[in-house]
Amino acid sequence: MTTLKITTVNGEWMNDWFTPDAQPAAFKPTFSRDGEQGITAEAAGRLAKMISDIDADIIALVEAPSRAAELALFVNEYLSVDGTATYDFVQGDSGGSQKLALLFKPDRVTAALTSSTDAAPLIEPWLADVDGDGDLNEYAFTRNPLCCTADVDGARLEVVVAHLKSNFINQGRAMWQDPARRPEFIRAALRNRRRIANEAMHIRRAMEQRMDADPDSAFVVLGDLNDGPGQDYFEEMYLAHNVTDILVGSPYQPERLFGHAQADVAEDQRFSAVFDDFVTEEPQRHVLLDHILLSPALMNGGSPLSKVPGSGRLEHDAWAAQIAADGSARDERASDHRPASVSLAYA
């Protein structure tokens, strides 16, 4: 039995490291993020070392640079052995300066973009009420999911890389702490979460269609969902739902439930990001934003590929190994997210 390791990695604004799109693709010696200067080689080297230490066969990369030529520079300079790149890649064309990409080891996996016809149910705009005003309007993903098809020794695996709408609100802390502006912040927060929830629902519906066509289809949905298990303040107090529950499916159709790989991780280690929550005044809040969801066929043996029991993990050690000083500066860490992984077995 052979295993295939799949990981999702957040590159944390890799686009900062490169020249503007109007210029030939090249690394900048230094970059700026949050008003601080960083050394590009330090940040890129730490990200590459973390990726190499994890040693996955397939990597979903979110917050990848804006151009394929830039990602090629990163792979060729930082992810190569004796001049040969360890990974090939497919990059999406949606997302502005935060693209989505799929890296894969070409000696183990062949991957390509899913045909536009097959991807259309997932990426085409749809009707939704994202403002809570009772009106349906056309809505589209902030970043279209990257849909790929991978071949693993003749076994087909569909991969959907997602980076859902951000919860970020400009000047949010100041708005929340100002009683006169707090209602404005709440409305913006709810609008963002409705958008995230609608994007999750659309992915779920597309995957339902895929299972209708082939109940034994093998697919994985992974990436930064900008939401974790349980409810945050706004989901609990206003919306009464979260995003990952929408994606996983209904318990009334247990045969259609997705497997959540990170459920294998001990509860106190089940987080990928840490931040100070100014809404709940919770310092160093631990949240699982990065997820790997597996189709039923990968969980119940309906596919030639199947989840290795207990293999879901969060790569805390590989992440921590790349922290310098306190890791607060961008070039002192590989990323602000811990990667998530799972392994699949095949004959």
Rank of each mutant, 00 (worst) to 15 (best):
T2N: 14
L4M: 04
I6M: 14
T8R: 13
W13A: 07
D16M: 05
F18G: 10
P20Y: 01
T30V: 14
A43G: 08
K49C: 01
I54S: 13
A68F: 00
A69N: 00
V75E: 05
N76Q: 14
Y78S: 05
Y78Q: 00
S80C: 12
S80K: 08
T84M: 11
Q91A: 11
Q91G: 02
G92V: 06
D93K: 07
K99R: 15
F104D: 10
T110F: 10
A112S: 06
S115D: 07
S116T: 07
I123G: 13
G132M: 08
D133G: 04
D135A: 11
N137A: 06
N137K: 13
Y139A: 14
C148Q: 14
T149Y: 07
D151C: 06
D151H: 05
D151K: 02
D153R: 06
E158S: 14
A162P: 12
N167T: 11
A174G: 08
D178C: 02
I186S: 10
R187S: 11
A188V: 09
L190S: 02
R193C: 01
A197H: 15
A200E: 11
R205E: 09
D214H: 15
V220Y: 08
V220T: 03
G223H: 14
N226T: 08
P229A: 10
F234K: 12
E236Q: 12
V243R: 09
T244Q: 09
D245I: 05
G259S: 13
A261L: 05
A263H: 06
D268P: 11
A273Y: 10
V274A: 14
D290C: 05
L294T: 01
M299W: 11
G302A: 13
P304S: 15
L305T: 14
K307D: 09
A318L: 06
W319V: 00
A321Q: 03
A321E: 03
Q322A: 01
I323C: 10
S328K: 05
A329V: 11
A329P: 07
R330F: 03
R333L: 05
R333I: 04
S335Q: 13
A345C: 06
Y346V: 09
Y346I: 04
A347S: 07
